[in-house]
Amino acid sequence: MSADGRPVVRITDVKRTYRMGTVDVHALRGIDLRIERGEFVSIMGPSGCGKSTLMHILGCLDRPSAGAVRLDEVDVDELDDNELAEIRNKKVGFVFQTFNLLPKLNAVENVELPLIYAGVGFDERREKAAGLLESVGLKERMYHKPSELSGGQSQRVAIARSLANGPSLILADEPTGNLDSTSGEEIIRLFQELNNKGITLIIVTHDQEIAEHSKRIVRLKDGLIVADEPVNNRRRAS
């Protein structure tokens, strides 16, 4: 629990229904979740349990069919598309399984992307992006294209990008899913370091071992939370 007691995420009775042809698919069927500043939460569950949908809603990429979403004291339901874009830009950082770096841009330009949309001028932007790359240990790879980077390096560039605008929350969707165990371990260690600096993290994973590096595990099944408990013997990434 953070000192000020104001949660980063507070969602109440969130439902999300998709229409697939003539069938309604209930991806989320009433989720309540409160995440405090400085937490490190894993969301786990089998395929199709709704964890990706939950992450998209937490990241303001998608809207719930019903229920309330409060992100950093902002009622997200009331925002229009442009305001949602601004939330994604300023308050949320995404880390994807497939990295999702733009292949034509080099590492530092990829990190600059959120800063461009935040309207930051070139010099300031470049300085900030370079600093972020340095903090993830990739300073000397600044001008490399994603095709010239390893999977682990790419994911670190993506993490630097997610940090660009100083977000309240980092959302990582299977961040180690495409990495070998060594690189995966590095990424988890980086996450733990970031969390130690006070950054709130939510990772979606189906890997119990990865989840045990976080502080709290939320388990989903069929669109509902079935378990929500702290990690007692937390692993330390070596």
Binding site: G59, L61, D81, N82, A85, E86, R88, N89, K90, F94, N100, L101, L102, L113, P114, Y117, A118, R161, A164, N165
Partner: peptide
């Protein structure tokens, strides 16, 4: 399409 998705995820508005 994917690039557009990424840009939107990092904060591109429609008008961007």
């Amino acid at each position: 399409v994917r690039e557009i998705g990424v840009r939107k995820a990092v904060g591109a508005r429609r008008r961007d």
